[in-house]
Design a protein around this nucleic acid. Structure first.
Lengths: 223, 223
DNA sequence: CGGCGCCTTGAACCAAGTCAAGCTCTGTGG
DNA sequence: CCACAGAGCTTGACTTGGTTCAAGGCGCCG
């Protein structure tokens, strides 16, 4: 199940000097990256593994999570195409990341990014901005976790809807994934969605498809 | 109540070139900072205010928090002497920070730090490392918020104990502060502490003083 | 068309919240 | 030095939102 980045695949990563800076963190160095694919359910990296690589999601969806000592899984983030993940300041990954579908990623050595950052202050600035955005996300997530079930689900739907145009939202994750992201059980997520449908705030044409009918009602719950 | 950084106080902040880099983020530039004091309960900065200054806590204790639309307060972090706070990548503060006691801080213009970072890659690297540490803290905090009350309180005590030597922990914050940090009510915090005392895991010689008697028992709860 | 994941629904239960006293410091003024 | 007031903390009784446990439905793929 675990995809390996072994000496063989490492040979695919050339270490040439970075081209001139661009505005995206990966922009200036992504030509150095290798492309990799992971099957649905495969682990891209695991907690406590050396954080030697940074990933940019090209296609598919991924989730990062930690496991509590009682076995519960807390999902920290979902990643969509264009998202960067796996970047850590410490030597090891603090969470695991899995492919939720077949996934293709661009892989770059962390050391390449760090050394580019010492040479190019634009890269350094992007590095900081990226981590800062993650920090905001993590704090918003923490705010979510003290709300009621209705507020959590409403916030989640609105958050997903931001990535879409129109009111139709495709859910690339299962009810269990949603529950583990929101700190609820699948039953509560399911009941809450049904309740929103009963209140005509949303429609559920299928279990993986949500149409927002009354954004205002959801927003009122979005503490 | 609100302490102001007005044109007058700004004049106190010279903008000379940074001295050679050191290992601390503030190290290389803190000579540029102005010292300020805040009375207990005073707001150091508020949510949505321009994030033009960065603070280093010299003495006292501070808390950063957000208010939910139902009026509940979620504390994100407590700051102790030596801690840096108020550093944001975005233009505005995403949370408010208040003095929990009389406080003295060193204040530096964010722009001074950012421009130092473009000149000196060590500063840039410290900037990133600092934000990355905050990110870890925020994610750990999110993990806390899905645990049981006992686990949250135990984790909190152990977390505070890390800053102390020995088993005696001084609590610089009220039960309400603890509750708002842990996403619980004061009653639950109080009951849980009493329960730990009944189980001989801690002693409570006074309400603001905790002695850890059985760290192992607490650690077993520390998911 | 049958089997298996995934999702929904119902009923009972429980951890934490709410509401309401009462207690314990601490500081203040007589 | 003591009486008192007020804030902060604890404790008890009751309520409740969300979990747990259990059953059943739906849809998808071989």
């Amino acid at each position: 199940m675990r995809a390996q980045l072994n000496a063989r695949s490492l040979a695919l990563l050339p270490s040439q000097p970075a081209p001139p800076a661009s505005h995206s963190l990966f922009g200036s160095i992504e030509l150095m990256g290798a492309s990799m694919t992971f099957k649905k359910g495969a682990e891209i990296y695991g907690e406590n593994e050396p954080a030697d690589y940074v990933y940019k999601l090209i296609s598919g969806t991924a989730r990062s999570y930690q496991i509590l000592n009682d076995g519960r899984r807390q999902i920290q983030d979902f990643y969509f195409p264009g998202d960067i993940f796996g970047l850590e300041a410490g030597p090891e990954h603090a969470s695991s990341t899995e492919a939720m579908s077949d996934v293709s990623v661009l892989v770059v050595r962390r050391s390449a990014i760090l050394s580019a950052a010492t040479r190019d202050s634009d890269v350094a600035s992007q590095l900081w901005a990226y981590t800062s955005r993650e920090l905001h996300h993590a704090r918003n997530h923490a705010m979510l976790l003290v709300k009621t079930a209705q507020e959590r689900v409403a916030s989640f739907l609105l958050q997903l809807a931001e990535r879409c145009t129109g009111n139709a939202v495709e859910l690339p994750m299962s009810r269990q994934d949603i529950a583990d992201y929101l700190g609820l059980t699948i039953e509560t997520v399911s009941r809450t969605l049904t309740q929103f449908q009963d209140e005509a705030a949303i429609e559920l044409p299928s279990s993986r498809r949500v149409v927002l009918r009354n954004r205002l009602a959801l927003n009122n719950l979005n503490a």
